[in-house]
Design a binder for these strands. Structure first.
Lengths: 347, 347
DNA sequence: GTGAAAGCGCTAACAC
DNA sequence: GTGTTAGCGCTTTCAC
């Protein structure tokens, strides 16, 4: 319990010899306050260690000074991609703390039927000023519509395809995947296999298109049999690798649509005594934290996740209160991270 | 923007034909409401899709219905232990969502000088109902004191040592580390090395004590030269391993005080062509997500992190509003996760 | 059991 | 430039 009652706006006003409205103007950095008055008020604020009460402010202004980051809730045990979520959080946090906002996190299970309702309830109770919806949730129409219907400003991350009346922030999945493919081809690889991601994740689907682009651009033919379906899990990467590597004319490079699957490939290669990158090059996508720490370190595609959420949060914060529907789209380029798991084709 | 104004307590009261106080009683599950009245109100709530406004409630009651989880902010790039933080979050989130609370996350850098002030400011502005402070921040007196001084209920996670007038939730670091050491000894290992963790992290220090206990219990002698100092980072694990493994009578087992350092050991072993676990057993501690996914999968100690934060959140939520200072301590037992990186001693 | 009235601490609209 | 007056939507106290 607080021994001494916390200072309120009235205390500050009294000490500074002004009205509470003036104090409010100062704390909100509104114009039209004489510099000398502002200083007087500032001094009182400092002296009393005054901080505006967030609830009162939010109640009076309908601005809550917090935003929500919603992402697919992986079981941390099944899925090592913690770094992915942490990077999402990190960017949003950066923007929030720079603007005196708070971040609420809300992992939601894509599979759960009532995620849309759950989010509506959260919005109605807590009135966040905006929502950042990360992929793959950002391409579930039901969820997107539920949020939109409340009128809460929304920024979608990597929704897979843009929608005219929405705001989205994405990365150049297709282009960068083509680049990775060309890179592998430039190392002399002819049989480059691809493991696709989960179908519901559109952005991951774009990586497959990029792979095909890259083959074409490198003058390589596309073969269905060099493609295996995965579902973004390590296990599916292992399964796909087991199939691909059991053939007699096996691929010399495997490009997986995410890092977890690539890690699965590397595990299988190790268990089959196939040297990576000597006999097999492996590339992933996402640059999740394990990528650097498995052996050999994984060549992958690095998405600027934190930058993307930071930008998303800034968009929401800047827009806050003006109530206009957000629309637009931004693309932040990803980059190749060449590490140890890729090398010249054998022979 | 909301097309239709959201239902308020007045709307519900009017529709149900009762006073707002009665509605309030129903939403807060207070006693002394006739069953038939309660039902009438419930019906109105459902019909209007009414949700109490969290800010208004918090302003009036001084209860904000959210808690804050504070943890050391690792750079996600340097440090793969994302799973650790995710598990912390997961438990707290579970408790929150079961009780209609929200979780605010606040990563803070231990090194940052003004972390204490930063937390005070957050507390004063937002008035969370409680704070969960994770290790290693939980053993920085300045931070702990800053939070306590605001009167906000606090639960410390693994503070290293208990304090009479605080509430802490820990795991049995020392005992379980002794158990791991005995397990290694039981495999025939005689030269079991230990890599210590960062000094500031007291709970990690307890693991070193446990290692010594385990040696004694197994009838093995303790040798200073089998101990190397690490700082919890992968790089420090690599450095320690490089030294330990360059000797002619090298250890046959290395037990690292956390998984990151153990991962570093495995990388160095791989680069030196030392077979794990054939020639060298490696054990870690924490069961961070990479543990399972490096090759070979890491034998480690699993702390029930999510359970611990879940319990912490429950303690805070149960206590909420009653203002009594929390004190007490609970211990949740960790368990050995035997995987592939440990095996019988060579020869 | 239920209700009326008085705030919680702030911002908004408008007066001066 | 600055102050005054109403609320925001809820809980609390205390009356009935």
């Amino acid at each position: 319990m607080n021994a001494k009652r916390r200072a309120t706006i009235d205390d500050v006003a009294q000490l500074a010899g002004v009205s509470i409205k003036t104090v409010s103007r100062v704390t909100n950095r509104e114009p039209n306050v004489r510099e000398s008055t502002r200083e007087k008020v500032q001094a009182a604020i400092t002296k009393l260690n005054y901080r505006p009460n967030i609830s009162a402010r939010s109640l009076a202004s309908l601005r809550s000074h917090f935003i929500v980051l919603v992402y697919d809730d992986p079981s941390p045990y099944d899925n090592p991609s913690g770094g992915y979520i942490l990077r999402l959080q990190q960017g949003a946090l950066r923007a929030c703390s720079a603007n005196n906002y708070e971040l609420l996190i809300h992992p939601g299970r894509a599979r759960k039927r009532d995620l849309a309702l759950e989010l509506k309830s959260l919005i109605e109770r807590a009135r966040p000023e905006g929502i950042i919806l990360a992929a793959p949730l950002s391409n579930i129409p039901k969820v997107v519509d539920a949020i939109s219907s409340t009128g809460t400003p929304l920024v979608q991350l990597s929704p897979g395809k843009d929608s005219a009346n929405r705001y989205s922030i994405s990365t150049n999945d297709r282009e960068i995947s083509a680049e990775m493919t060309r890179y592998l081809a430039s190392l002399g690889h002819q049989r480059i296999a691809f493991i696709t991601g989960h179908r519901s994740h559109k952005a991951v689907g774009n990586r497959f298109l990029g792979y095909k682009d890259g083959l074409r651009q490198s003058g390589l033919k596309f073969f269905e049999r060099l493609v295996r379906d995965g579902d973004n899990s390590i296990a599916s990467g292992e399964a796909a690798a087991a199939e691909l590597l059991d053939r007699k004319s096996r691929p010399t490079a495997i490009f997986a649509a995410n890092d977890d699957m690539a890690a699965g490939v590397i595990r299988i290669a190790a268990s089959k005594d196939i040297d990576v990158p000597g006999q097999l090059s492996v590339a992933g996508c996402d640059d999740i934290s394990i990528a650097r720490h498995i052996f050999p370190a994984l060549t992958t595609i690095r998405q600027p996740l934190a930058t993307m959420t930071e930008r998303a949060a800034c968009v929401l914060i800047e827009d806050a209160g003006n109530g206009s529907a957000l629309h637009g789209s931004e693309v932040f380029p990803a980059s190749l991270q060449i590490r140890e798991s890729t090398g010249p084709a054998p022979d």
